[in-house]
Write a protein that binds this DNA or RNA. Structure first.
Lengths: 415, 415
DNA sequence: GCTCTTTTTTTCGAGCCTCGAAAAAATACT
DNA sequence: AGTATTTTTTCGAGGCTCGAAAAAAAGAGC
């Protein structure tokens, strides 16, 4: 089952810890690293000297801010941007976006492309992804060998091993092992992530104050997705990416959901559901394929303008989200929530019914404490999350070698 | 945030690993331990020699089973039963049960007692617990100093730090810091656990084949509880024991629940709910305080006997459980389920509606795969779980000292 | 301009820990 | 009794972290 700690693991882990400390803090001095890691100054000195020698870290200017201090000035350590690069591939409805990011986290090359993902044959979809990655890798500004890892994100369900997309609303095709495909094609380790999980990862890096050990990112878009961090760990299902908050049951035998079932939270709170209710089409009406952001904004404007079916549609969305969150909170206790996506811009219309519903649930014990944040634009978040995830893998695997890992999966059984 | 690995941690962790390997395997040889932990023979030899010298492990007879083998026979290592003892305290509705267990896991002293927990004043309830523990500690057969840890379990919500009961259906009183009270009284480290979590822990030890990394234990009793193991880890909420499956919302604004809210799963599947529906009392009827096991068995018999309100009551329970499980599975993916408690004996009446409901949900994708096990008697399981939990603490803390832990809580911030 | 103080960083020896190889131990086979 | 086989122990080598002390690099004071 669990495996003993070998002697050589020690250095590897502590190297990884130093790299992680530098990535988090930006430009910490050796003394600061010693404080945050709890290791001795001598150890930090030895490890950072190694890492600098290997070109992974670099000494930057002495820290100027507090130059009032006496004594030898601290020397800031920073990541060497040229040590490596990673690539992010974000595949969403009718849209493909790729970026190359240096080791310090700066975008150095990117490309975006519209495609008709819903009608595209399987091979074309895969081909488009491979082609866009190849174009970026062949970018003359870039040294191909420096791209150490690729992180893909897709709306939909991925497997826990982060190899394949199992199901996605953006395409009728299922079980596409994107990670394996890209690995075979380019020989670069790749992982396939769920978009909402990447949102959560990004939020954690963006605002570690608010999004620390426990929080929830909910995507309010055409569908409803969730990324969940519990006790500092990204939460995934046992076999798939899990966290399919949008398909928790709000109303047994209720409204028709895009997934073909009935009564899911999404069937009340997804863009298509809000649209359907606002147009008073009835809960059995087949979900429309897509509602433009502009249409959704118009809907929200109409709802704000006057009482009517639009406002009622947002109310119903809030109620479904509230009861869903209440059930979730019964399982995990309340935590800060970030609402992301177009409908997050209409959260003022959603919030009252949501809070009312959540107060009816066991999880909503102290619903006044529960705080919501909104972020209307999901794409940058997803990309940022992918970038950080890929960089973290590079930190752990490439620059702290020796682990029994392969492609992001820590193997549990060694015997 | 995360802390570097000090040099002395190494030995401590590997000692703990060896102890854990012996506890799991029963009588493994040094060679077997080396294989399961991945450590070298020399290391295992050194560590086990230390542990034997400290009286924690003991060499037992050479393993006889496969005595056909050539070569030096393996020497089995086992836990020294006298190395320590732990105490379990299980507090359930109108019932208090205490046992002392030796380091090898055998019960060496026990006592059970009926009390009227629902009407008892706060101090009396606490006093009864303290008194029964004192009586067991003063048992002449027992060396007091050898009791190294106490694990309490209670039906209800506990805090993540495992110090206090926050809320429980068995008493009107709230926020009783049982762990602190016993620690102060007897100077023995104590933890306060949730009963269903202990059931899950016990199932894992009882049948590691079936209940390994991911599974669910559901208590079908007066209330509905859940213990959840995900990726080999006991799942708890961010602040409380969490996993309040019984209070996920099945039907917004639905049947009246014991918790005062409406539409919880428990309001359809708890004993009182089945009773209420079987008696056709209406969903707004105030839940009864208790239904005897005999009454529940009679109800099940009547339901099996003929179509009627009893059978319909079990159907409704199954539906609520099914939709609830479906929502849960949407979050975590399906996993093996153990149904525990009186109504688990009536699972034949519950299962059809449960499976039908779960098939209507996203989490019930392949509902035919989902397997259920039943165990009508929860008390032994809870006690077993407490014992293993307490013993594991002793393994980790007492016999592998140096960790920055206190009373079961691993401190995350060292700086 | 020089010395003293303060703080950061590096150096160095001590003490552990794990590992691999070889030796020792304990049994079955012939 | 001797040989083969398997388990367990022994022993030296190599690494790692740690604490103390030294070195380095500034500001403060005169």
């Amino acid at each position: 089952m669990s495996v003993g700690i070998r002697h050589d693991d020690l250095r590897r882990r502590n190297r990884a810890m130093v790299i992680a400390a530098v990535r988090r803090a930006g430009q910490p001095s050796r003394t600061e690293i010693a404080a945050t890691t709890g290791l001795s100054h001598s150890t930090i000195s030895a490890i950072s000297s190694d890492l600098i020698g290997e070109g992974i870290l670099a000494e930057s200017k002495p820290i100027e801010a507090g130059s009032l201090k006496r004594g030898r000035p601290q020397v800031g350590l920073s990541l060497n941007a040229e040590a490596a690069a990673v690539m992010t591939v974000v595949l969403s409805l009718n849209f493909l976006s790729v970026a190359v990011i240096d080791y310090a986290g700066q975008v150095i090359s990117e490309e975006q492309r519209r495609l008709d993902t819903l009608t595209m044959p399987r091979d074309t979809l895969i081909g488009e992804c491979v082609a866009i990655v190849r174009r970026r890798l062949e970018d003359p500004d870039l040294d191909v060998r420096s791209v150490a890892r690729i992180a893909l994100a897709i709306q939909g369900i991925t497997d826990t091993r982060a190899r394949a997309m199992l199901w996605s609303p953006i395409t009728p095709h299922t079980d596409i092992a994107f990670a394996d495909i890209l690995e075979d094609e380019f020989g670069i380790p790749a992982t396939m992530e769920n978009d909402c999980n990447m949102m959560a990862v990004a939020l954690r890096w963006r605002d570690p104050q608010r999004y620390r050990d426990d929080f929830i990112a909910i995507l309010l878009s055409h569908g409803i997705g969730m990324g969940l961090v519990l006790k500092g760990q990204l939460f995934t299902g046992t076999h798939s990416s899990g966290g399919e908050f949008g398909h928790m049951i709000h109303q047994p035998k209720g409204a028709l959901c895009r997934c073909g079932r009935r009564g899911c939270v999404e069937a009340y709170a997804g863009n298509y559901a809000i649209w359907r209710n606002a147009r008073q089409l009835g809960e059995d009406t087949e979900p429309v394929a897509d509602v433009s952001d502009a249409d959704m904004r118009a809907l929200a404007a109409a709802a704000r303008d006057s009482e009517g079916p639009e406002r009622e549609a947002y109310r119903k969305a809030g109620e479904a989200l509230g009861y869903g969150l209440g059930s979730l909170f019964a399982l995990i206790d309340p935590a800060p929530v970030a609402m992301v996506g177009v409908s997050a811009a209409a959260f003022d219309l959603i919030e009252p019914a949501l809070r009312e519903a959540i107060a009816q649930t066991a999880g909503g014990q102290h619903s006044e404490w529960i705080s919501f944040d909104t972020e209307p634009n999901e794409l940058p978040l997803i990309r940022e999350g992918c970038a950080m995830r890929a960089l973290t893998f590079v930190d752990q695997e490439i620059f702290a070698p020796g682990a029994q890992t392969r492609s992001g999966l820590v193997s549990k059984n060694v015997a």
